[in-house]
Amino acid sequence: MLSVGLMMLTLLMLFTLLTPLLVPIDPLGISAVDKLLPPSLDHLLGTDELGRDQLSRLVVGSGISLRIAVAATALTAIFGIGLGMVSGQYPAIDIVVSQISDSLLIFPGVVLAIMILAALGPSELNVIIAVFVLYVPRVIRTVRAAVIEYRDADFVQAARSLGASDLRVLVLHIFPRAIGPTMVQLSLGFSSAILVEAGLSFLGLGAPPPAPTWGGMISGAREYIRTAPWLMIAPGAIITYAVLSLNLIGDGLRDMLDPRSRAAGQ
């Protein structure tokens, strides 16, 4: 499962990076004559209502999507792991961090993201912030739980009695025990980031037009679903593909790292 997911993700990245080298890409070029053309050799995925090349828009959109997801996941990883370790180790800090991160978990995901973007205004950076705020509590909780689990373990006490500092104990002795579940959370967070980004741009809260986003493309295609269904199918398919590949990676990691579910799967 893990290898299939990784392969699919690699293909998506190659598609994003290599397509501009193979076909002319012009996501913004408007042409009234060429509007709503079905797929052809000139326009492999057809054109939209303004005559813009769908394939170009899809490729550029996938760049935006991946960029946002990577940035949000990186932020989530850095702050989630850092805050999780600190709050697992120091009860005084834990009270503050856990209260804030738990109260963020109360909101249904997308609603919180909409609130944040409504407050900050639609832009690529703000989508990154919204996705980060949405997923950082999960990573904090995962890392914190591992720290609490191993805080009083014998091998941690042994390291402390050798004179190891808190930082050394956290980073070298405890955190490696948490890498597995943290990676699972991050990969699932990555796929959700793509989904949330698509959802937000569908609602017009993502990167503002004319930037081509997957969600924005679906949103624009709604009116032409009967006359030009390819407008909806291509971005829909690629979102499904991206999320599927990342969920396969997440599930694969979980199976690999959790001996219980590995035994159950066999």
Binding site: Q157, A158, S161, G163, L172
Partner: peptide
């Protein structure tokens, strides 16, 4: 102070299975 102390006073634990960091 902690370093000066722990250099001179060390400990051996009961459980040889749990007292060694497993990924080291």
């Amino acid at each position: 102070e902690r370093l000066a102390f722990s250099r001179n006073v060390q400990m051996v634990f009961q459980d040889p299975y749990g007292s060694l960091t497993p990924h080291f």
